[in-house]
Design a protein around this nucleic acid. Structure first.
Length: 506
DNA sequence: GGACGGTGAAACTTCAGGTTGCCTC
DNA sequence: GAAGTTTCACCGTCC
């Protein structure tokens, strides 16, 4: 109620506002409630554009389109890039008046508004609902006030009770922001930097490494160089064990002066890992998996599971309680094809392992041509999140291909590159030949295939009029041109043949 | 007497985001 | 911790 009043007041002033909430669902709900109270706004065109951002709208697209029509948007990581851009651009032009958002909006984009309304100052964390850091509060509150249009801005926190009101004032209005901590100490990051520095030839000895890190913000902050050096030492040992680097020179220390002076060299593999920019631990685990793969029967599931188990893929899709049985079943079905090891049932890692299986299943369904709506329903993953996961999988599969080349496991290269194309496009293997064509993705390739046009030769043979009925005139011309047939100048009427499935019907 | 349906209380679930990785000419 | 969802006991109605 308070929120609606605040918003209608903002609108009456002819101003815009951002509303920050703590969950995606919350953002959608708030936007819907607000949209419900709006009368005389009708952004039909924009709404349609938002709705058709994907080849087939999902429930999320429909919800968004409905609120957008009223000039109200919700904004979170579940939206695809195009929708986010449309919202941001149209907020800047002033067509969209209100955005209800998760912290996405405060982090990246520069979108100032007259009012910044902070509806939730608590968020689910390790210990239940926790107050968000003061720094984050400042990020969100700082969105208020547009330098070009307003001489000031208003940031408004909504308290849930009188008692909370005082708490908010003390904590946020009067409070100091937290200290900033270096993230370098996190092992994956340190692993990558140590290897990179060596691979780039920036440093060659342990001593130089110690030196380098002693000049970082991390060292400045902790002051305890001994601790940092011990960490670096441990990482060097691992990198050597994994055969990414080798050390040479004074191994048996004849004098204390030699300590830290042995030279490190990066192996071919180590150099590539550094270039690929993945965590050396992931690379090492991939190497083990790929070695295993070279000597067993593998399926798509195998490689997708390998990729889904990596740190890079985190957070994985979370297994819901009621899915437990189903996931376990799928696991049993595919057990013989697993590449990444299965932890013991009592290991605390086991939950994460099941999550990785769910993630693997999600990828499997994607390359089985399931659409976004299905994936949303089945896996509770939204379109925007799908894109992010696919992008990471693509990169990791590319990395695997490169590792396989160095390992010289030639037969695996083909499997991996096929899988990669399928991940990029979300298609079954049979459509791969058609994807070579510009302007042909999963949807058009499937239409062609269903009508008996299955590869380059078929496209060459196919009637132009058939192609037009399937793909539309413009796309048909572009596709035909790619097999050396120029229909651009020939005037052709679009005559849809009976019984054939056209793009529009799909 | 039993099938069915409606109701509400209790129990159970779920919960933000993301940078740049690479290259195929 | 709070909002949303599912489960379940309980009751009344109808056949």
């Amino acid at each position: 109620m308070t929120l609606i009043k605040l918003i209608s007041d903002t609108l009456a002033m002819g101003k815009q506002a951002l509303v920050f909430v703590n969950t995606k669902r919350g953002a959608e709900k708030a936007a819907e409630e607000l949209a419900h109270s709006i009368r005389n706004v009708q952004l039909t065109e924009l709404s349609a554009e938002i709705l058709h951002a994907l080849s087939k709208p999902t429930k999320q697209c429909e919800r968004l389109a409905r609120t957008i029509e009223k000039g109200i948007a919700f904004h979170h990581a579940g939206l695809v890039q195009k929708q986010r851009e449309l919202i941001e651009d149209n907020f800047r032009t002033g067509d969209i008046k209100i955005i209800c958002a998760t912290p996405t909006l405060a982090m990246g984009v520069d979108l100032p508004a007259f009012r910044s309304i902070l509806k939730d100052l608590k968020r689910y964390g390790h210990r239940g609902l926790e107050y968000i850091p003061v720094l984050e509060y400042m990020q969100m509150a700082g969105r208020a006030g547009r330098p070009k249009f307003d001489s000031y801005g208003e940031a408004i926190c909504i308290a849930t009770s009188e008692a909370q009101k005082d708490e908010l004032i003390e904590r946020y209005l009067k409070g100091d922001p937290e200290d900033i901590f270096s993230k370098l100490a996190v092992e994956p990051v340190l692993r990558m930097y140590v290897l990179s520095l060596l691979a780039a030839g920036f440093v060659r000895t342990k001593k130089q490494l110690f030196d380098f890190f002693s000049k970082t913000f991390f060292a400045h902050q902790f002051e305890d160089l001994g601790k940092i050096n011990a960490l670096i030492e441990k990482i060097l040992q691992l990198l050597e064990e994994w055969e990414f680097i080798t050390s040479s020179g004074s191994q048996d220390f004849t004098s204390a002066l030699d300590l830290g002076n042995e030279h490190y060299k990066t192996s071919l593999m180590g150099k590539r890992v550094a270039e690929l920019y993945i965590d050396p631990l992931t690379a090492h685990e991939f190497v083990l998996c790929l070695q295993k793969a070279a000597s067993m029967k593998t399926t798509d599931f195998s490689f997708l599971q390998m990729v889904s188990s990596s740190l890079e893929m985190r957070p994985q899709l979370k297994m819901r309680v009621k899915e437990s049985e189903e996931i376990q079943q799928e696991l049993m079905k595919n057990e013989e094809f697993l590449l990444a090891g299965e932890p013991s049932l009592y290991d605390y890692e086991y939950d994460s392992f099941l999550d990785s299986i769910k993630t693997t299943l999600f990828f499997s369904e994607w390359i089985d041509e399931k659409d976004e709506e299905y994936l949303l329903e089945r896996f509770n993953i939204r379109p925007g999140e799908i894109r992010v996961k696919l992008d990471i999988a693509d990169w990791l599969l590319y990395t695997s291909e490169e590792l396989v080349k160095i390992l010289n496991f030639k037969p695996l290269i083909k499997d991996l590159s096929k899988l990669r194309i399928r991940i990029q496009n979300g298609v079954k293997e049979e459509l791969i030949p058609l994807l070579k064509f510009e302007q042909v993705g999963r949807v058009r390739a499937r239409i062609l295939f269903r009508n008996g046009i299955k590869d380059v030769a078929d496209v060459k043979k196919a009637d132009f009029s058939t192609m037009v009925s399937l793909l539309g005139k413009n796309v048909a011309i572009i596709v035909k041109k790619q097999v050396g047939q120029d229909f651009a100048k020939i005037e052709v009427k679009e005559n849809k043949r009976k019984g054939q499935i056209s793009l529009r019907d799909y």
